[in-house]
Write a protein that binds this DNA or RNA. Sequence first.
RNA 1: GGGGCCGUAGCCAAGUGGCUAAGGCAAUGGAUUGCAAAUCCAUCACGCGUGGGUUCAACUCCCACCGGCCCCUCCA
Length: 543
Amino acid sequence: MPIRVYSTLTRQKEEFQTVEPGKVSMYLCGPTVYKPAHIGHMVGPVIFDTIKRYLAYSGYQVTWVVNITDVDDKLIVKANELGTTVEALARKMTEDYLDNLRTLGVDGIDHMPYATQYIQEMQEIIAGLIEKGYAYPLNGDVYFECTKDADYGKLSGRNLTEMLAGTRAETRDGKHNPADFALWKGSKPGEPAWDSPWGPGRPGWHIECSAMARKLLGDTIDIHGGGLDLMFPHHENELAQSESCTGKPFARYWLHNGLLRKSGAGGKIGGDHSRHGDSADMLAEKQAQEEQKLAGSKGAESVKTAVFAKFDPETVRFFLMATHYRSPVDFGDDRLAETEKSIDGFYRLIESFGRATGKDFYSLPVPATRTESDAAFVGWDSVPTSAQVGTVSQPTVWPDYKAELAALRIRFLDAMDDDFNTGAATAALFDLRKTLNSFITDQKLEGEGRSNAAAQAALLRGVMLFKELANILGVFRKPLEKKSAGRADDEFVNSLMQLLISLRAEARKAKQFEIADKVRKGLTELKVTLEDRPEGTIWRRET
RNA sequence: GGGGCCGUAGCCAAGUGGCUAAGGCAAUGGAUUGCAAAUCCAUCACGCGUGGGUUCAACUCCCACCGGCCCCUCCA
């Protein structure tokens, strides 16, 4: 099954074909680093990290670029306010951003270019656009002339003449028409500035992406991504600049992720809420919100304090994977808490697997590509591969179990092939969990079945498949910190627990259930759960 | 006003022009357990916002309406 992706440009799913066979170039618009990252900033990177993982798994060599905007009006304002330099502020906020990405397991970014390091390349594009008649200098600024670009508006579905008809042509600033946007902005005294043929200044918002994408990935990139809010004007303008400059398609596929909304609060995270057609009231309100935002008391909290302080990053990532990337998503503590509950069983499975085989799930190897994975399946007692499902005769030992594994694997991969449908893919993961649990139970792998080496091997293979698929989504890569069976940060606590458990075991042996239950109830109040298993009692802390 | 999206069980959420409308949370019954926990099995939308239309057939396509959301403003 070929990979299909939904492109904003055509508003439909298309078969994925890259410029260069076997290679994928991917560009994601990164943050303007003027304040600590909030959870909304993490969505794009997590999604595109997963996309990269899947493309790499599918055999592509992927190059992924995420830019850092380190020069911008907001940055200048904020730096002034804090009495620091734009450079220092940008560096600090970039570190915060990267730190959060690491926490969420986003590790596939190949290049993180800073806008200020590509001034030269931006100026080359601007000069080229002026030369070709797509742009004009004006009082130290340079503007892109939208009307010169025949298909301007094609990405966001806008019609330029209608747009212009809708606005009163207030070209008070001398722009040829209101839709024209700045490629280069002349600087005022005290602002960061670079020399240019049009006088000292700094780049406009959109030009950096055109320049960096071109420099690092070429004239035509395969995938261009970003939040839905960037579709217009940012991506529309990027596209217009780049294609006018090179005469080639800028990106083959435009992928836009849905925005996060604050659960129950209405409105997206980190946004303003003013409407169009501002009345005086609304302007006042808008201004008030701006002030609150600057004071740091309004808008989204940083991801660290708002999210990671309460929830494990693994939970956050799974939550993001459980819905479709193009849909808007309500985000809040209640939702995360539910995700926590729903993935609990996976950690039980992982622990159960450890008891059954004595192996550590987290250090199991995973195949790097689908081809390798196919080979692994062929090598293991003839579980059918994707091409063989339904046609190959099943082995005599646990045919149902093995057939289920193979079918679930295909279900997962088919879902990913279909525009990276991680929501449907996670459903396959849940079913896989059930299959594995059943196998452990049926084969009594935590009890007498432990001596059954063949069954153990079969379980191992199934769990490896689980790990392989989870790894594509970037989930279950490490244990939940607050909630692991039979472990505590403190050796002292461990010893106490063992003491309690052995005392209780004696009571149970003597049928003194009142005492035994008293111990368990007391522990429950301390958020500790005991599980009496045939092989012994285990304990777990609840969050 | 212009551009676009969404409305699937108590909640979250995939999906499809025609087979039993994924999965999770919650709930109920059962197996198991000294009792629990965990796990497994079963049940849980005759219907996919409302009303029309197209079609042999629509929840899936079209239209209208209701409700919610996003963008049009250097927000990921």
